[in-house]
Computed example of a mutant assay.
Amino acid sequence: MADRTVPPALNRPGPDRFLWTLDKFTSGMEWLHRNSRRNHPPARPVDRDIPLVVSEIQAAVDEVVSLRLTDPGGGVLPAWQPGAHLDVLLPSGRKRPYSLCGEPGERGYYRIAVRRLADGGGGSREIHDLRPGSRITARGPRNAFPFITAPRYLFIAGGIGITPILPMVRTAAARGADWRLVYTGRSRESMPFVDELRSLAPERVWIRPDTEFGIPASGAELLEHAPRAATVYCCGPVPMITGVRVDLPGSGADSLHWERFSAPPIVGGRPFDVELARTGIRLRVPADRSALEVIGEAVPEVPYSCRQGFCGTCHVRVLAGAVEHRGRAADGRMAICVSRAADRVVLDL
Score class of each variant (00 low, 15 high):
Pro104His: 11
Trp20Ser: 05
Asp247Thr: 00
Phe272Tyr: 15
Pro42Lys: 01
Phe261Ala: 00
Trp258Cys: 08
Thr184Met: 08
Arg180Val: 03
Thr137Tyr: 05
Gly161Leu: 12
Thr5Trp: 11
Val65Pro: 07
Met240Val: 12
Phe155Tyr: 09
Ser55Glu: 04
Gly14Thr: 04
Asp247Met: 03
Asp47Trp: 09
Gly121Met: 15
Ser199Arg: 15
Leu90Phe: 10
Glu221Thr: 11
Gly309Val: 02
Arg38Asp: 13
Asp178Tyr: 08
Glu126His: 01
Ser134Pro: 10
Gly250Cys: 02
Ser99Glu: 05
Asp23Gly: 10
Leu10Glu: 14
Pro167Ala: 06
Gly159Trp: 00
Ile127Lys: 09
Ala144Asn: 12
Pro286Thr: 13
Asp331Thr: 08
Pro45Arg: 04
Ser124Phe: 07
Pro91Gln: 12
Ala217Gly: 08
Ala144Asp: 15
Leu222His: 03
Ala298Ile: 02
Gly236Leu: 03
Ser134Asn: 05
Pro78Val: 06
Ala220Lys: 09
Ala330Asp: 15
Ser190Tyr: 06
Gly93Ala: 07
Ala220Pro: 14
Gly28Lys: 05
Asp71Lys: 01
Asp49Ile: 12
Arg116Glu: 15
Ala277Thr: 08
Leu22Pro: 07
Arg139Cys: 11
Leu222Thr: 04
Ser305Lys: 02
Val294His: 04
Asn143Met: 04
Arg4Phe: 10
Gly332Trp: 04
Asp210Tyr: 05
Asp3Cys: 11
Pro151Cys: 00
Gly312Ile: 00
Glu221Asn: 10
Thr149Tyr: 08
Ala43Ile: 04
Phe193Arg: 07
Ile207Trp: 14
Phe272Trp: 05
Leu100Gln: 06
Asp16Asn: 06
Ser199Tyr: 05
Asp119Gln: 09
Val53Ala: 09
Gly252Lys: 14
Gly108Ser: 08
Asn11Val: 14
Glu212Ser: 13
Arg152Gly: 09
Thr149Leu: 08
Gly327Thr: 03
Pro286Gln: 13
